Computed example of a mutant assay.
Amino acid sequence: MEHRNRAQGWKHAKRSGHENERLVAELTENDINIQNRLLQCAHITDATVDRVEFGGLCETDVDCVLGGKTKSKTDMWLFLSNGKRLNVSIKKDEGGQVFLIGIERFINGFELQYHKNIPDSVKRAISLYFGSAVDTLEVINDFGSTNKQLEIRKHRVVADTLKAYDGNLYHLLLNWFNENISELFDFCFAKGLASNSEDWAQIVWYKNMVGENQFDTMLYLEDFKSNIPPTAAYGTRNGGSTIQLPFGFVQWHSPRKIIPGNLQFHHSYEKIKSL
């Protein structure tokens, strides 16, 4: 059995993902029943599929709400006979990273994408929980108890420490996640930081054609996001180092060990399927 380190694992996942996109696009191009399933999923009754394209290794960046360019959540495009386009995000795994974003980009991008102001108290809680606050180490030294070594190494506080420091911030952060759970799902799966609606994903298709998972589930995101329950909760491990979400979880992550880290959102096919 082949064992890979983390860097090798990411490269394998990326190559495997691109190959899966190619195979899924070919299947869609050549199978009218698949095309009809996708159209029905998106409630499209007045068009047929003219052609199919996918990003793969030739994926191009799109306009970003923060200026400059960003990655689109779309992996495959169905060009329709009515002149419109149906955008599909393809997931080949049951779980894994769905959105990795820096703390300030998350705050500014969310506010611009959804025309909402995140309260200063919530921004303070985010900056402590994910480690961008300038006094993070002071808070850890004064209030950390569950796993100080982990907190110092990652330059972030866990839920227990946040609660000990300021119980109000502890509750406000979780409440904000629950109050904005539909937007957070939409942010992770459909829009990301892309500024133009033609670049947003409309369908998530759990489909694996490279032999690793056996599923075939399509979700029309606009329908799905309005039915997500506000059940976000702090995780139970390491003093609450994650926020568990109804569609996955979010955690601190820094691929290059840079401080401060990022928000890393994970998706979960099992959680989504249960909804």
Rank of each mutant, 00 (worst) to 15 (best):
E2P: 13
G9N: 09
H18F: 12
E19R: 12
L23Y: 10
D31T: 14
D31V: 05
I34L: 08
C41I: 02
A42P: 09
I44P: 07
F54M: 03
G56T: 02
L57S: 13
D63M: 06
G68I: 03
D75M: 02
R85Y: 00
L86G: 14
I90Y: 11
G95C: 11
V98I: 15
E104T: 09
I107D: 10
N108M: 08
E111T: 10
L112N: 13
Q113S: 15
K116N: 08
I118S: 11
D120T: 13
D120C: 09
A125Y: 08
A125C: 08
A125L: 06
T136F: 03
I140C: 11
N141W: 00
D142P: 01
L150A: 08
I152Q: 12
H155E: 09
T161K: 00
A164N: 15
A164G: 07
I181G: 10
D186C: 12
L193Y: 05
A201M: 07
Q202G: 15
Y206F: 15
V210A: 05
V210K: 12
T217P: 04
T217W: 07
E222I: 04
E222T: 11
S226D: 14
S226N: 15
Q244Y: 00
L245E: 07
G248C: 08
V250S: 06
R256T: 12
I258L: 13
G261Y: 04
L263R: 03
F265L: 06
E270D: 11
